[in-house]
Amino acid sequence: MSDMFVVSTSPHLRHKDSISKIIWMVFLALVPAGLAGLYIFGPASLWVIIAAILSALVTEALILLLRGKKLRLFDGSAALTGLLLAYNLPSDVPLWIPVVGSFFAIAIAKQIFGGLGRNIFNPALAARAFLLISWPTYMTTWAKPFSYPDAISSATPLNLFKEGGMNLSQMGLSYWDLFLGNRGGCIGEVAVAALLAGALLLIALKIISLHIPLSYFISLGLFSWLFPARGGFATGDILFAILAGGVILGAFFMATDYSTSPLTRKGQIIFGLGCGLFTFIIRRWGGYPEGVSFSILIMNAFVPIIDRFTTPRVYGAKK
């Protein structure tokens, strides 16, 4: 009688998705934006991407060996961190920048906290913050689109907006340029159209949900519209605020990182709203023209407390 039943503990329903499959799908979804970046900024950006991914893999292998853990290099997490870091760098940085950045991302931001799934902060963004604070000159020298191999430098639209007080037409750009990526910026953030295509794939596969990105856009758009730097109450340019910086890349691909974002829908909405608010505050009053990476890092720190206060009621339990 007893061998007629399988006795096991939960979970009883299993899905064929694995962590590494999800990570490689995110990687795949990011490829179009990288190809677009390559087309816009030239071969220099390819070297940055290769250097970042390779050094992320080497660091991961080294630390896993030191920690006496199983080498799981091809679960894709280190490669994805390297790719995301490269997407957050200008195309003409010296190649040691992505190498040092990837080392910091994997060794300090990921492995010291316990490795895959245990990190509090998004490793790629932590590394970007480290690089930006340490070597600001390299990290804020942007190549003009399609200027390779001469590599003429140019400012990003957000920089021109903040420091120069220009609007879009004074920059000689249109919304269409911002959408297609014809502007100065990081390798992976400029090609909004390609990023959206990748994001659509992830949403269609249900790898990411829209809660974080949408609430991010809503709060950033709302605050930028209500309190613009110039022009008075409720006259801000919402489309510019969302298209001009790294918000698309940050909201779809970095704020949604599983281990550094809240678990529940309600928590994810709070998380997204907070990201938007902090991005707005940094852009409007902070020392940097762009605040996406710092605001996601700040909200990463809030994730445990958000999770604690948005725990759903257990079915049948009383409040």
């Binding site: 040092v100 480290f130 604070i133 340490s134 070597w135 600001p136």
Partner: peptide, 8 residues
């Protein structure tokens, strides 16, 4: 090239 963050 010094990493400024370390003295902060």
């Amino acid at each position: 090239e010094p990493a400024t963050m370390m003295v902060l």
